[in-house]
Simulated scan of single mutants.
Amino acid sequence: METLKIGGVQLTWLSGGVTNLDGGAMFGVVPKALWSKRYPPNDKNLIELPTDPILIQMDGKNILVEAGLGKGKLSEKQLRNFGVTAESDVEGSLRKLDLVPEDIDYVLMTHLHNDHVGGLTKLENGVYRSTFPRAKIITSTIEWDEMRNPNIRSKSTYWKENWEAIESQVIPFDEKWSLGPITMYHTGGHSNGHSILLIEDEGEIALHMADLMPTHAHKNPLWVMAYDDYPMDSIAAKEKWGAYAQDKNVWFTFYHDAFYRAVKWDTDGQIQDSIKRVK
């Protein structure tokens, strides 16, 4: 498992599953001739997109960022449609770190789309139960409201199987939420309630843009997904936080990137340092 230190904060990537989605949908109006040079597709025009949560350990607390795709919950049709080549093994990853799901204190959900939230619940004897029963689950108020009352577009990804069993654990926030060196900021864009994470400790910074920047190839503010509900909000947030990160030597971390766990870009937009994903 790949790791990254931000001051006294330890980040470790867990095994949350692997999907393969249409490259055109993931890059929106960007021509394939451009995006395929940075993130190559297979012969079916699909690109590999892991769904790997990040375990944050600090001050004796165990904090998950996202929950993975889940395991044993999707039908054969759903597995095929989402191009799933591996389901979650978050519990197996935790065991390697001498942890169990009950050790998780917080789960920070940037948004509640199925590929991020599926691992929050598990199916046991026909009943959905919380995977992390002791955890406080943090997400934006807007996201939590839409999760339970989706619209005609979002109902395809906000499912009751992913929220009913954990309803009592959810703590929603409005504009921002903080815990020590971690702050979540509501941005909108990919979904109306989408949020990002900023970690600052001992002069070091990590920025988790979640699905505003699902891979390193989405650095350009204009390269947004067709899946984004509010693409102009995505662009505005990427411009804002890109300007914030300029000249700060920031690590950008990823949930979906098949090649990198984290990268640093220089002022010319070239990768100057990286942590590669080990397959």
Rank of each mutant, 00 (worst) to 15 (best):
residue 65 V to Y: 11
residue 39 Y to H: 13
residue 58 M to F: 15
residue 25 A to H: 01
residue 50 P to N: 13
residue 58 M to D: 03
residue 47 I to Q: 05
residue 34 L to A: 08
residue 24 G to V: 12
residue 33 A to I: 09
residue 53 P to Q: 02
residue 38 R to K: 10
residue 40 P to Q: 13
residue 38 R to D: 01
residue 46 L to N: 04
residue 25 A to T: 10
residue 60 G to P: 03
residue 36 S to W: 01
residue 36 S to K: 08
residue 50 P to Y: 13
residue 52 D to K: 12
residue 56 I to W: 02
residue 49 L to E: 05
residue 48 E to G: 06
residue 55 L to S: 07
residue 51 T to L: 06
residue 57 Q to G: 15
residue 60 G to F: 12
residue 31 P to Y: 13
residue 63 I to K: 00
residue 56 I to A: 01
residue 41 P to Q: 06
residue 57 Q to M: 14
residue 30 V to C: 05
residue 60 G to W: 09
residue 64 L to R: 06
residue 52 D to Q: 06
residue 24 G to M: 12
residue 48 E to V: 10
residue 38 R to G: 03
residue 48 E to A: 09
residue 42 N to W: 02
residue 60 G to M: 09
residue 27 F to Q: 00
residue 66 E to D: 10
residue 50 P to W: 10
residue 43 D to H: 15
residue 61 K to Q: 02
residue 56 I to Y: 05
residue 24 G to W: 10
residue 65 V to E: 03
residue 54 I to N: 09
residue 37 K to S: 01
residue 47 I to K: 12
residue 58 M to P: 05
residue 34 L to P: 01
residue 37 K to R: 04
residue 48 E to P: 01
residue 39 Y to E: 07
residue 49 L to Q: 15
residue 58 M to E: 08
residue 51 T to A: 03
residue 47 I to R: 12
residue 32 K to P: 02
residue 61 K to N: 01
residue 26 M to A: 10
residue 41 P to F: 04
residue 28 G to M: 04
residue 46 L to I: 06
residue 41 P to K: 11
residue 24 G to E: 15
residue 43 D to F: 15
residue 53 P to F: 03
residue 62 N to W: 08
residue 42 N to R: 03
residue 54 I to A: 09
residue 42 N to C: 02
residue 42 N to S: 03
residue 55 L to Y: 14
residue 43 D to W: 14
residue 26 M to S: 09
residue 55 L to M: 12
residue 56 I to C: 00
residue 49 L to Y: 07
residue 45 N to H: 15
residue 58 M to G: 08
residue 36 S to N: 03
residue 32 K to S: 04
residue 50 P to E: 10
residue 53 P to G: 05
residue 31 P to F: 13
residue 49 L to A: 09
residue 64 L to I: 04
residue 63 I to D: 00
residue 62 N to H: 11
residue 39 Y to D: 07
residue 31 P to C: 09
residue 52 D to N: 10
residue 49 L to M: 12
residue 57 Q to N: 15
residue 44 K to F: 00
residue 38 R to S: 06
residue 42 N to Q: 04
residue 28 G to S: 06
residue 39 Y to W: 10
residue 46 L to G: 04
residue 59 D to K: 14
residue 36 S to Y: 04
residue 59 D to N: 11
residue 26 M to Q: 13
residue 58 M to Q: 13
residue 51 T to I: 03
residue 57 Q to V: 12
residue 30 V to D: 02
residue 37 K to M: 05
residue 64 L to Y: 00
residue 44 K to C: 02
residue 47 I to Y: 04
residue 34 L to C: 02
residue 43 D to Q: 14
residue 41 P to E: 04
residue 50 P to D: 12
residue 30 V to E: 03
residue 33 A to P: 02
residue 63 I to E: 02
residue 26 M to T: 10
residue 51 T to Y: 02
residue 62 N to M: 11
residue 60 G to H: 11
residue 66 E to C: 12
residue 38 R to F: 07
residue 44 K to N: 01
residue 48 E to C: 07
residue 59 D to Y: 07
residue 45 N to S: 15
residue 32 K to W: 01
residue 56 I to Q: 04
